[in-house]
Design a protein around this nucleic acid. Sequence first.
DNA 1: TTTAAAACCAATTGACGGTCGGTTTTCGTA
DNA 2: TACGAAAACCGACCGTCAATTGGTTTTAAA
Lengths: 128, 128
Amino acid sequence: MQLGKLEKLVLHYLWQHGTADVKRVFAHFEKIRGGSLNTYQSTLDRLYKKGLLSRVKEGHAFQYSAKVERHELIGQIIKSVTSDFVAEDDSSLVAAFSSMSKDFNEDQLNKLEALIEEQRQKLKQGNS
Amino acid sequence: MQLGKLEKLVLHYLWQHGTADVKRVFAHFEKIRGGSLNTYQSTLDRLYKKGLLSRVKEGHAFQYSAKVERHELIGQIIKSVTSDFVAEDDSSLVAAFSSMSKDFNEDQLNKLEALIEEQRQKLKQGNS
DNA sequence: TTTAAAACCAATTGACGGTCGGTTTTCGTA
DNA sequence: TACGAAAACCGACCGTCAATTGGTTTTAAA
């Protein structure tokens, strides 16, 4: 899973705005980065074919919306990009997490810890 | 920061074997995936130019070795690949962590928690 | 049924990794 | 010091993929 610059921008836009057709996307990006309508057309199409967007026809145009939440996609990408490095039962990924946590502030650390605790509870239930 | 397949393989080899020249790398990979010596030559060179390897001349040949630990590189890659998604003061990355922690077993969760605690201590010291 | 809007297709460009042949540099040795 | 082998380095080509855009086909509304 690897995304181009524009694909990320478009995803970002859809996460913020929920749903949009090509015209809306184009209207938004036209001023700030140029490009033709077709550029956004095919970018949306590419994202759709990658399974990252869903779409529904409404009148002439498709209404696109993100199919996955931002954090889900991030997790997915992290997984795909690290899988080649990590042997199973390896703690490299855990170590990598901690290597990144240098950049986290206390608030974020708290959040992360809470989430871990939550996960731990789920694990216990599942294994009982 | 994005690495090709062969680059990852070579890094993997160097993490395991510590130090090697092109000849050794070639000798190792020749049987299992083919390619000419030059292929490995330029792969090592590419990795070196990316700052991921260090090298020291010894006789004719360079002795290459990984410049970063595996977990450091993983952290680096995660950071680079997620930075475009994460807004400032956003907890998406934290959320992504938790989205991935589904794949962690209890042991790994423990390890992660311990590392977070460690990080928290460092933060406290730094801010005092 | 016409026709404008939008989707779809095809081609080009630019990065980048992988691959390898050929050239230059380097170093040990005669 | 000069020679020859060994290794580094350079340049070219291929394949993949995102970005971009012009042209063609489909589609839906009047």
